[in-house]
Design a binder for these strands. Structure first.
Lengths: 152, 152
DNA sequence: TGTATATATTTGCCTTGACAAACAAATATC
DNA sequence: GATATTTGTTTGTCAAGGCAAATATATACA
């Protein structure tokens, strides 16, 4: 039933650990695929670009929240991506405290390339699940997330 | 359909981000529950104690691998837990390079207390899933993990 | 209006984890 | 048996994220 030894986590993984393990393998796989495609970006940078691509310009805090990120960390992540020329911090016309983070044309084309890598990796990762199982996986995770976020 | 605004991640989360979000909420919830019970331990420390409790004495690298942890990080985690008196590094009688990490009596009783907190939190987190769904969630995650770890 | 409070972003500080190098001891190869 | 390779642990270094404080501006309220 369990011929090799390495991948056999005997006791059913605690959910917390299992989530960590899956995530870090996913990150590793994605970064490897990115490197092959000549994209020198880390997982988080990629996620930020993807969000901006899909959701359009938005504030830094908003982006941070949607990624479960600290505001300070987001500031520095934006520094990196702006440095690379993928985005611009524009002043928000309605609120002088806030920013509107916009992808540059370079950022948009990078985001498109990334989307391809990302899709390939996710697809490979879920090879062992059929379409319905994939949906359920996302659904269960979302339900757990909502529950955890509910005020006790 | 989506009355409040905060918890509504409009675009179906990318699996990677969703995993991060669920995990960090789970960590937050567990650490809060631990704090209430007067246990001053972090998520990773707790996981290590639980593993040692369930699986018995084992080497440092083995423990690190089963938690998806770096060896160096494990050394420092063990330092902390040994400092607190929850475990002892004993020499491995068969292999003089290796260690046998053993819980102290104090460590074992702490692990028992922790198990309670941990169970409560996991149970609350999965409140929205029935027994079959909970099993499937674990199963899907494990299948994805195995796939990701397969040599390409 | 003026003052208190809340919000958006940045910065400093600290902890943690990854990676690589160092070491020691075990195992394989000749 | 001697040398090379592998394995288990530790240490140094670095980058990243969390938290708290600082700053600027917006909003509420008296």
């Amino acid at each position: 039933m369990c011929p090799t030894e390495a991948n056999c986590s005997q006791p059913p993984e605690s959910l917390g650990i299992l989530l960590s393990l899956v995530k870090s393998e996913l990150v590793r796989a994605l970064e490897q695929e990115l490197a092959i495609s000549g994209v020198g970006l880390r997982f988080n940078q990629v996620q930020a670009l993807k969000r901006l691509q899909v959701q359009g310009p938005q504030g830094a805090g908003e982006l941070a929240r949607s990624m479960g990120y600290d505001n300070g960390a987001m500031t520095r992540l934006l520094d990196q991506l702006e440095e690379k020329g993928y985005l611009k911090r524009k002043p928000d016309p309605q609120d002088r405290r806030a920013l509107r983070i916009e992808l540059t044309p370079r950022g948009k084309s990078q985001a498109r390339q990334i989307a391809g890598c990302s899709e390939r990796v996710l697809d490979a990762a879920q090879r062992a699940l059929n379409a319905s199982e994939r949906e359920h996986l996302i659904d269960y995770l979302q339900r757990v997330l909502v529950t955890l976020r509910e005020p006790n």
